[in-house]
């Protein structure tokens, strides 16, 4: 009896703490959602109020009317789209090559690539900026996207995935008359779909949320992506009050939030792979 009581207390305690932290993690989003429909006077009222009164869409309208916000959405979509698509190709192609083709010293080549993960982005940022200036592709969304089109973690993940499938499948394809390239298109690429799904999500999140690269490499506001644009709009006080910033932040984070809520199982599985390698 005593033991049962203790267990009930323990479980309730755990629930209390877990729910408290869930609220802590979710509250900024919830608060923003309510706040985005308030006038700025109400949103900054102390003590905080919850029900928008009057309910207003001005914050959202201002995004469209006074700013390049729609352009930034399109830019971010293009930038992320390019990065996701090209990374699907580069990761599956080189993952397959490193996992199942013979080449002298291929593991050395692979480890050389992998070692790049240890170099902080700030070390290569300045030279890359200089190279881009000299090549004349600064302030160019496509030029910037190129820098992120061969993600090494993605290549690593695909290589591990193809290793886990075993080499017999690829050998069977070769014996069945497929040359190494055909074996890639008919066997490796279609079989890689689950892992490529995870890679797409990761690259999408990274590209959609990228800040440092776009901040340094993009110069004119009409080329900005959402994070740079929002930070720019905030620092220049384009909308005169804070309401549209909150509304814009919500819209800008909506794709990543939706994607994560729908596909969270994929993502969380991906972490297991990463954690076990480290």
């Amino acid at each position: 009896m005593n033991r049962k009581l203790f267990n009930i207390l323990k479980i309730s305690g755990i629930y209390l703490v877990l729910i408290f932290f869930a609220l802590v993690y979710l509250m900024p989003f919830i608060r923003s959602l309510f706040g985005s429909f308030m006038t700025w006077e109400q949103a900054s009222y102390f003590p905080p109020q919850w029900i928008p009164n009057p309910m207003t869409f001005t914050n959202y309208l201002k995004l469209v009317e006074i700013s390049l916000f729609p352009t930034w959405i399109i830019n971010t979509a293009i930038y992320s789209g390019i990065i996701v698509l090209v990374n699907i190709l580069t990761a599956s192609m080189s993952g397959y090559a490193f996992a199942s083709l013979n080449f002298p010293k291929k593991d050395l080549i692979f480890n050389t690539l992998l070692a790049l993960l240890m170099i902080p982005p700030f070390v290569t940022l300045i030279p890359n900026f200089i190279i881009y200036v000299k090549l004349g592709i600064i302030d160019n969304l496509f030029g910037l996207a190129i820098l992120s089109t061969a993600n090494i973690s993605s290549i690593f993940l695909m290589r591990q995935y193809y290793f886990s499938l075993g080499k017999e499948l690829f050998e069977a394809a070769r014996i069945d008359g497929a040359n190494p390239l055909k074996a890639f298109f008919y066997i490796a690429l279609p079989l890689g779909r689950p892992a490529l799904g995870a890679i797409s999500i990761y690259n999408f999140l990274a590209a959609w949320n990228a800040f440092l690269g776009p901040l340094v490499f993009l110069r004119s506001p009409e080329n900005y992506t959402l994070p740079v644009g929002l930070s720019f709009a905030f620092s220049r006080s384009i909308w005169s009050d804070y309401g549209p910033i909150i509304a814009g932040s919500l819209i800008a984070s909506a794709p990543t939030i939706l994607l994560f809520v729908v596909l969270n199982k994929y993502l969380i599985r991906g972490i297991v792979i990463r954690a076990s390698k480290g």
Binding site: A22, Y25, L26, L230, S249, A252, F260, V261, L267
Partner: peptide, 27 residues
Amino acid sequence: KVAYFLPATTCSVIISLIFMWLFEKDG
């Protein structure tokens, strides 16, 4: 899991902007 992980999938700039509002003196 989803609730705890959500901040990690959200852009750091957006997080900062929202928190600046929440961190205001009368916030």
